[in-house]
Amino acid sequence: MHPLVHEWSRDRLSHEQRYEVWRNTIHLMAGAAHHMENHFRVTSMKPLLTHVEEGLSQGRYQLFSNGPELSQRVGAALIFCRLFRYFNRASSIEFSQGALKCIQTKLPGDCNYFPAILEIGAGLQSNGRYKEAISLNLQATKEAEEAVERPVSDNQDAVRNQKSAASNTAMLMVNLARAYTHDQQNQRSIKICEKLTEVYTPMLGENSFEVRSTLPILAHAYRDLGDLKRARKYLEKSIEDERKLFGEDYQSPEVRQLAEVYIDLKMFKKARALQSQVVSWAQERYEEDDIDLVLEESILQLYQPTGRSVLSGHRKLRERIEGYKKSLKGILEKGGT
């Protein structure tokens, strides 16, 4: 539909009607983004991103303005932050910081407080700002731990709130451990993961997302430290646990990491089998010329036991990268973005 039609339609609505339509649209898009995120539907998330950006351009200031359902609007904003971060939008951190500021000034004690900090920390890590992420998560973890340690009555709401506080604390520790690993502070990362497992497994359960998240982090840390056997053990356990919980067809993000460990251990057949799975999943998720699919296919070419195959894979990878460079150059010369 032509943009002018949208403008004419919008102009015919009263201010209250425009707000109502905008609010409903925001919640609808947040729900859709959350669903797609959980099911990793990348091809659907890309066009949704355009609609989200358009919706926010019509009323970004309203997202954090006073009024009814402010907490729900902040929650929607945090979902959009994850969408922005996934597609490397520069506004991701700024947007999540806006959500946190809104909570601090207008919604003290809101349930989105720690999720906002988690999102800022994740954004910092995505941008390679690991030390800032460490500082942020350290401070927030101490604050969250205090909430967990407060005495709790037998009241069901109090027990539920403590479990929520435990979950927030554990996720902050996960983010902290991940940031330590990226910053090459592997021993600290390992200690954080071990503490999380010891303290929060009784509260959250062995199969909780927070506890399971420590396994790939430990694997990453031990791999960096040269302990490939431990790295393999943690990754295999992580994948096994996920498949027990979600079924044999679950597309575990740790499969690629385990394939890399198998390569380090010179277990080429196993590595290639796993990377073939990753390519198959990527073919379901991405369009044919998507750079992520190209990357996974190129990596598969490298997972061969002979030097000749590796060199051949490198050549193919370079050729495809050069092709993308030429395409990008052509777009820029035409004034594209």
Rank of each mutant, 00 (worst) to 15 (best):
E287I: 07
D290W: 00
Q283E: 15
L274H: 07
V261N: 02
A282T: 01
E296Y: 11
K270W: 15
L265K: 01
I291H: 13
V261T: 11
V261F: 01
Y286W: 02
S280N: 11
W281Q: 09
A273M: 14
M267L: 12
M267R: 11
A259G: 02
A273Q: 08
A271C: 06
Q275Y: 12
A282W: 04
Q277P: 06
E260K: 15
I263T: 14
K270V: 06
I299C: 07
F268G: 04
W281Y: 03
V278F: 03
I291G: 04
E297C: 06
K266R: 10
W281L: 12
E288P: 10
F268L: 14
K270F: 14
L258E: 06
S298G: 10
V279W: 01
W281R: 02
V279G: 05
I263M: 06
S298I: 11
K270E: 13
V294R: 15
A259Q: 08
A271H: 01
I299Q: 11
F268K: 11
D289S: 14
E284I: 05
V294P: 08
Q275H: 12
R285W: 13
A271V: 04
L300S: 03
V279L: 00
A273R: 14
I291P: 05
E297H: 10
A259P: 08
K266I: 14
I299M: 06
E260Y: 11
K266A: 14
S276T: 10
E260W: 11
L265S: 05
Q257S: 10
F268T: 14
E260V: 07
L265T: 01
R272F: 06
V278C: 00
D289K: 10
L265G: 06
L274R: 00
D292K: 05
E297W: 09
E284R: 12
L295N: 15
E297V: 05
D289M: 13
M267Q: 04
S298F: 13
Y286G: 00
S276G: 09
E288A: 04
E288S: 07
D264T: 01
R272A: 08
Y262W: 08
Q277F: 15
S298C: 04
E296N: 12
S276F: 03
W281N: 11
I291R: 08
R272I: 01
E288N: 04
V294A: 13
K270Q: 15
V278R: 09
Q301T: 11
D292V: 09
Y286L: 00
K270H: 13
Q275D: 07
A259M: 03
I263V: 15
A273S: 09
Y262R: 12
E287Y: 05
A273T: 13
S276N: 08
A271K: 00
E284Q: 13
E288D: 08
E260A: 12
E288R: 02
E296W: 06
K266S: 03
I299F: 11
